[in-house]
Design a protein around this nucleic acid. Structure first.
Lengths: 372, 372
DNA sequence: CTGAAAGCGCTAACAC
DNA sequence: GTGTTAGCGCTTTCAG
């Protein structure tokens, strides 16, 4: 052994380095020294509990202590760790929002409404786009539950026919509320436009403008909102003693292309329509097709949409439509969800599903104003 | 004592109830019995550590154990608690995205790009709208830092002139990346369109269409992207030996109204322009104003926008514009941020700011195609 | 390959 | 009013 002093020295060094690494490195290194309530406590020579209470403005803490704590907190540039607080309190103050698509302006606006209220109440908002598919909707829900969100807001994807993932959410006790695209068989609260009334008013408007053969280019019938609109459309016709003609009802997928198809379908009929009611995108497609067929809007064919998408105001002719109060819808959706969250926190028995129905607002523009 | 056997029994019961409450209630009551790695461990008579490792597919765990753990996990309907894991690991697998406004389609699409990649990498996305104000931008940043996001993506608000909140983020060590609206004085990476080149190409296109007096309705000059576009516009004119005329440059706030104002301003000049380059919204306003002034597009005045907003394809005339590859921008933004996050995790010294520049793509439509 | 043990930063029941 | 204490559910050394 005496023969290899250098070697043993080296080995000793190596060991030292290893030990050093083991002790100092594992976490503290990359995290630097975060300022915690402990740091503040140490600085003021009080306990972390007091600091915690002072920061959350607890009633049993003296004003003096609160002042001091807040002072030191700002001095040290303290930033509360929400993750830790969430773990302990069981509340994340975060909600998840499931949006079908980013392409429709409507959802962006609702999102904005949700967020504005959420922020006021100190909630963070997680967003997840489903791209109208069931698979991604399920993944979104999973992600939200894993993140332990306090509540979930959903506008159902077109591709969703199986709703078991929502039942899963209910079972886990996380409040959930639908907006715009709802399902009423699950006992889940919802915030929606009065699609039935909106469709009625739109159809009535066309009737009052003197149109006699009013068609409806509808959306996918498995989505309640679209079948509701069909009902409103039929109701209006009946209310004015007009016949509901099956050949004037076409069901597409609520897209520009569907609008073109609808028009081609209608015009190939024996008695073509002189007016069409549809969602905004379908209406847009319809307008394009009608113009290409050299027919005049609103003279030959009147058009009214539904949704008040941004483009409607800028196309030629400008599109009559129905506004869905998007910002309000977002705010209402959050409000309803927020109530359910609060209720749950208070151990109150869960109230039955509420349906909040927003008034559709008519917007008259060129595409349907024959008499002007 | 013997006289009141019932009473003492009752008292005993009461005490029991109190004790029961004290022990069982304070949290467990509302949370029900969550399934944790402990439950799984108990079920299989192994330790939580092993379960944790098995679930995260650790290399030192036998396939057999992994299989069993996963089996029991699904059987018990286990859902990992991300909050707990975040607290311990220091990583939340969440990023925050600061968006100026929900009204512009552009941001919705970028958001979608960000999210699609984020989801693939297992990241959640927090969204915060700043409404173009500095105050809300600061609040958003604060919320993100409190939530301990792993990284932040920002498109700077129009109202932001003071950038100290971003410096704060840098100081705290949270990776941050700008997209679209960047600031290059802070050493922060960014993903942007080549606005200079885009403006050059747009202007060049107008020149090649034979327009002689090309105006530029610019945006707010304190935003780099708009001043870049002005540079590109000027460069193109010079490249083709055309004079840069100050009276043909108008700076507005990139809105429809600004477009109308720009046109009114230009038409009141001595030698009005025969073409205008602007952002999409300004271009839309310009088109409206030009039509009202009974001038023809593209014959009297040619128009080209920038941004490829949805409406451009549907208005009359259809708007020539420049596509900014929104989805790609979102994905790139996430990719750059993700790299920074990974780098940070690996103790690697922070690389200097990278600037990712996306190629603008010309879209020729009616508003600028004189010769056709 | 698995177990034991020590927290991450914060909150809240209980004690004084 | 404030301190004490005990975790929330998970990860991660370190020790076999």
């Amino acid at each position: 052994m005496e023969k290899w002093p250098y070697r043993s020295l080296t080995e000793g060094k190596r060991l030292h380095i290893l030990q050093y690494k083991k002790r100092e490195c594992p976490l503290k290194y990359k995290m630097a020294k975060e300022v915690t309530i402990k740091s503040i406590a140490k600085e003021l020579d009080i306990t972390p509990s007091t600091v915690s209470r002072a920061l959350s403005n607890h009633r049993y803490i003296s004003e003096e202590t609160k002042r001091l704590v807040n002072e030191v907190a700002t001095k040290l540039n303290y930033r509360a760790n929400k993750v830790a607080s969430s773990l302990r309190s069981g509340k994340t103050h975060t909600i998840g929002v499931l949006i079908p698509t980013a392409k429709i302006n409507f959802f962006g606006n609702v999102m904005h409404g949700i967020e504005s209220l959420a922020n006021i109440h100190g909630y963070n908002v997680l967003i997840y786009h489903t791209n109208e598919t069931h698979a991604q909707e399920v993944k979104g829900i999973e992600a939200f539950l894993a993140a332990r969100v306090d509540g979930i807001l959903v506008s159902v994807a077109k591709g969703t026919m199986d709703f078991s993932h929502f039942k899963e959410v209910q079972k886990s006790g996380v409040p959930i509320v639908f907006f715009d695209r709802a399902n009423y068989d699950l006992g889940i609260s919802s915030v929606v436009t009065d699609d039935c009334l909106g469709a009625f008013l739109a159809t009535e408007h066309l009737i009052k403008q003197g149109y006699k053969n009013i068609a409806h280019a509808a959306g996918p019938m498995h989505i309640k909102l679209f079948s509701d609109r069909l009902v409103g459309y039929k109701d209006a016709l009946r209310a004015y003693n007009m016949k509901v003609r099956k050949d004037l009802i076409y069901s597409g997928d609520a897209s520009i292309e569907a609008g073109r198809e609808a028009i081609r379908h209608f015009l190939s009929g024996k008695v073509p329509p002189d007016a069409v009611f549809a969602d905004d995108f379908t209406a847009l497609g319809a307008i394009k097709e009608i113009k290409e067929q050299k027919l005049k809007i609103p003279e030959d064919i009147g058009i009214i949409g539904f949704g008040n998408e941004l483009f409607g105001e800028h196309i030629t002719p400008t599109l009559s439509t129905i506004d869905q109060q998007t910002i309000l819808m977002g705010k209402e959706a959050f409000r309803v969800l927020f109530q359910s969250i609060e209720q749950k926190n208070k151990f109150t028995s869960i109230a039955s599903a509420k349906k909040t129905i927003l008034k559709p607002i008519m917007i008259y523009r060129e595409s349907s104003l024959k008499n002007k």
